[in-house]
Amino acid sequence: MQLSDIKKLASTARISMSDEEAEGLAKDLDATLVYINQVNSAPLPPEEVVVPLNRNAVRDDVVSNPTGSVAADVFAQAPSQMDGFVKVKKIL
């Protein structure tokens, strides 16, 4: 992998990264990719539409907590807030 690939992936993942770390990572990931590339030579059975074993179960779409009952606990963790909203930095 090229340094530029790593920088691009890091930016996609919103992770700031020094050039030095990105270079080390490029080497590590090359070794990891050599290992996981085994999957390309694995004897795969013919592609079929399979129903995965694990499926998400979804509960009924109803309000199960009385309004406001957990808001204070959740808000207590946010670093910045205003008028019942979590505050973020300006976007543009």
């Binding site: 700031s16 990264m17 973020v88 930095k89 543009l92």
Partner: peptide, 14 residues
């Protein structure tokens, strides 16, 4: 952080 993107980058990078 000067804006939201830099905030994300720094928070997650650090």
């Amino acid at each position: 952080a000067k804006d939201l993107n830099e905030f994300y980058m720094k928070t997650r990078g650090e």
